[in-house]
């Protein structure tokens, strides 16, 4: 059993390493124009991003992402709570929500450019709109799914209004809200990149597309690597927050399964 575990761990570390080495060796001797040597990509990465363009491109991109994502979470939870609590509101708003979330998000970009121009407001708006739907829909589900016994407990003990939201409804819906936030975060990253590709003079998305247009292939690759890293790190950070905040959820679930 112990030898099997050792084998699994070796595989887990070894296979990705082997993949990297293969890429390194192959790209070094392939002489392909599109796929420059990995060594070149990494050198360019160090030259470009550490920390040359962090202030001019990375931080503005991330700030817009954070603003749009944050606005979407606040709005999504607020509207989702209202729709989850009142059946009439749900029936009236239902088709609009269904339609809004069905629009492929990039289709809203031309609309946003028309109305808001090409500045930060447009990008934050587009990111926020895209992130809104998963958070909103999951909040509605979460609020509707609160255990009826919990709601009766709240009624019996006179817990109502803001206290009911804060201590009962939102904590109970939080696992679902986080599920929505995870979906939203990957969408936010996508729209951050697209909005910069379509209309911007700085930002990571702008940089990558510009590098491709000027055939600066290692630079382009270094941008792709950076976006990959950002995607991975942002997801990991959210997962970390979720583990902290929802510690009770995992505990309660695993004890219920026993």
């Amino acid at each position: 059993m112990n030898r099997r575990r050792a084998l699994l761990i070796a595989l887990e570390a070894g296979v990705p390493l082997a993949a990297l080495v293969t890429w390194w060796v192959w790209s070094a001797q392939a002489g392909s124009f599109y796929f420059p040597p990995l060594a070149d990509i990494l050198t360019t990465f160090a030259d470009t991003w550490v920390f040359e363009r962090v202030g001019s491109d990375v931080l503005p991109s991330l700030a817009r992402l954070a603003a749009g994502f944050g606005a979407a979470v606040v709005l999504g939870v607020a509207v989702g709570t209202a729709l989850g609590s009142f059946p009439l509101a749900r029936r009236v708003a239902g088709p609009l929500v269904e339609f809004g979330r069905a629009i492929p998000p990039p289709a809203l970009l031309p609309f946003a450019i028309l109305v808001l121009g090409v500045g930060d407001a447009m990008k934050v708006f587009v990111i926020a709109v895209v992130c809104l739907w998963p958070v909103l829909l999951n909040t509605v589900d979460g609020v509707r799914g609160v255990d009826p016994t919990m709601l009766e407990t709240a009624r019996v003990y006179g817990i109502r209004g803001a206290q009911r939201l804060r201590t009962i409804i939102w904590p109970a819906a939080l696992p679902q809200i986080f599920a929505g936030m995870r979906t939203s975060l990957s969408l936010a990253l996508i729209l951050m990149v697209i909005s910069e590709m379509v209309a911007s003079t700085h930002g990571i998305g702008y940089f990558v597309l510009q590098a491709q247009r000027s055939f600066a292939i290692p630079e382009m690759w270094s941008g792709i690597v950076l976006l990959g890293l950002l995607g991975y790190l942002l997801n990991a950070a959210l997962a970390l927050v979720e583990r902290r905040v929802l510690r009770w959820h995992r505990g309660a679930r695993s004890s219920a399964l026993q």
């Binding site: 990957s186 990149v193 597309l209 382009m220 792709i224 995607g231 991975y232």
Partner: peptide, 17 residues
């Protein structure tokens, strides 16, 4: 590990490629 690394890459990063 490879899947966990590739999955969160925003697909639009590959547009230039």
């Amino acid at each position: 590990v490879i899947i966990e690394f590739l999955r969160p890459i925003p697909s639009v990063a590959l547009i230039p490629l």
